[in-house]
Design a protein around this nucleic acid. Structure first.
Lengths: 205, 205, 205, 205
DNA sequence: TATGAATGAGTTTTCATTCAT
DNA sequence: GATGAATGAAAACTCATTCAT
């Protein structure tokens, strides 16, 4: 089907611009005009494709969560063994969040504090990440790799720990590299479920 | 001299009202009018006591952080031993956050996502909590109670873990009690620094 | 030559849709999009056939006035005698207005209040109806059927009387039938030019 | 009670300006900015006093209807005899409408065609005028001055007749004086209820 | 001829801030 | 010190109109 004016492309340009602007200015300080300009389209194009500012934000959130989770899943699917998957998941989440800084800021920072009206959406976004972690933790519990912990609580706690470390690094005036944090953070998380440091084991291999 | 007005009292009423309104509606959706009404004073009184909306929010944030930290410090000062202090700190933070739900929502939820303009303040608030944790962790490292971990990273990770668990509980449609989370969360955190479950030890006492 | 499109048919569909939409929402609240959708064509087709929203409204108005007047003229042409024609005219106007409720609402209600820019068109539409009445009143004066009244004033007054009675009936929450109004209204108008009730005379026949 | 900034005066200035602007440009083409400028206050003052554009229009409508009706009532209360009151009412309505041209245009022209949303208000405004006429017609019926006609229908028809004559005069390019219409219109209306011309009787006095 | 995506000037409304009282 | 009426810049959203296809 031939597309006049390239409808899908315009929509994508708007979503890209929205991510840029929202992550840069925050939801409330972002103007539709900013998005229109950044997208190199127009306010009219915006409202043709999205019914409201809120709607594009929600669309963006859903898209980002899906992409990030898909990426993580893809990165760990070839790992064998529940523990190895968990370790890979931690590493990948950190790597992907570090790589897609804008998307991460959008998800973890800008999405917060929008008022009760957005609570459910934020809750859902966080929950999907936590479920991703919980799923693999549960697998490790099931095959006996780890003790029978409270999987859900641990998943949230881990997500929060990762979130905060990244968050403070993002907000910090001296933008230190995220890479240096990966190993100690991973060790900390694994130890919280009774695993001796993987890094030591790795070194001992 | 007739004291028709009570300057300090008005200021306090405004701060109380601001906490109520900000935690209820979020920073951007809170109106000065809302605060004026809630405080039972007026817009003029507001601008006599605070130069701007932003200023009262900052004042509120600083006040809350200070109070919460003071409360935690007070609660743990009689504990002896670095580990005992850490455990008490975790318990107290959770207890206080659970008790002052509005203040917690303000600090953990509404304060986030205000845009880059507020980044430094948020960073500072989080940092103070992390430093509180870090201080006691460092003491434990110093007296040999725990291994020589990365104290700062751990502090942020812990704060993040606590934050997220509370956050999700606050946002959750079914408001489950925070109390039931305290013990498993404490165990998780302690285990992350190599401590076997305190709850087991407690039971063994 | 393949006729994929039917120019005249499209134009007619647009006019029909416009009448529907204008009479339903009023000129200002009617959207070109509404007309496009209702007509089952498109915005592009609209602007191919009409240069502007205003233009289709004017075209519609002119068309309606012409049709209604033609219908009235046709209905009374076989009547003989000036007074009989007048009575037939009143009855027919009421009957036609009652039958074409949407067109009537458009002419009598929506067409009003569009601002000075439309004044001349509204004036012209009303005038054509008044002239229709005036023509037959003048004939009655000329052949001595009625006294030498101010024909033009009477024509406007009659049109206004009919208009208002219909208007209030259209706007009224309880949509009472227009039929029950015809006889008393006709009697009232005829009496205003010195004619004793036709209905009585009819009954006396 | 001392008024800061003269609250009531500002409200009045806004209503006066609204009448000016609405009657000049019509409801839809009138901008809040126009009203603010015309009133010599500000957009903020507007929204302090009225919650919306629609609200001030409704307030204006209600005020005008009340004032006009009160004026008419006052003008005829000293007349004795039902018929004399009716005649005085016709004369006064015409005189007052002619004098307050802007208010009249607002009530009779601009208030129409605002879409179904306003139907009830317009209906109510017209009804109040019709009731004013109906009340005095009924009195005339009751004391035997006139035959037992359909009072309500007559009231609407009369209002419509007056409305249309004024309306066309208002819209007419050559603004002829309304005064010359008063006598023949009054005669027409009175004759419609079986009264021989008052003007003749007057002359015969 | 027809389509519908795109444009952008225009509008109502909001609300932090000011200031006369 | 306190009040609340007034200000006006800003911002989301609308919609007649245009035009590439």
């Amino acid at each position: 089907m031939m597309r006049r004016y390239n409808k899908e492309n315009t929509r994508k340009k708007l979503l890209d611009a929205a991510m840029e602007v929202f992550s840069d200015k925050g939801y409330n300080n972002a103007l539709i005009d900013d998005i229109a300009k950044e997208s190199d389209t127009s306010k009219g194009a915006f409202y043709f494709h999205f019914p409201s500012k809120r709607a594009i934000f929600q669309a963006l959130l859903a898209t980002l969560v899906k992409h990030l989770i898909d990426d993580v899943e893809a990165a760990i699917e070839h790992e064998t063994g529940a523990l190895a998957k968990i370790q890979a998941a931690i590493d990948t989440v950190l790597a992907i969040f570090a790589k897609h800084e804008k998307a991460t800021r959008l998800l973890l920072v800008e999405a917060t504090g929008l008022g009760k009206a957005f609570d459910q959406e934020i809750h859902a976004a966080h929950e999907q990440f936590a479920q991703l972690i919980a799923k693999h933790l549960q697998a490790a519990v099931d095959d006996g790799s780890i003790a029978n912990i409270s999987v859900e609580l641990t998943a949230y706690a881990w997500f929060g720990a990762i979130y905060e470390v990244l968050f403070m690094t993002l907000l910090s005036p001296e933008k230190k590299s995220l890479d240096s944090l990966t190993t100690p953070l991973r060790d900390l998380l694994l130890q919280s479920i009774g695993q001796t440091k993987r890094s030591n084991l790795d070194a001992a291999d």
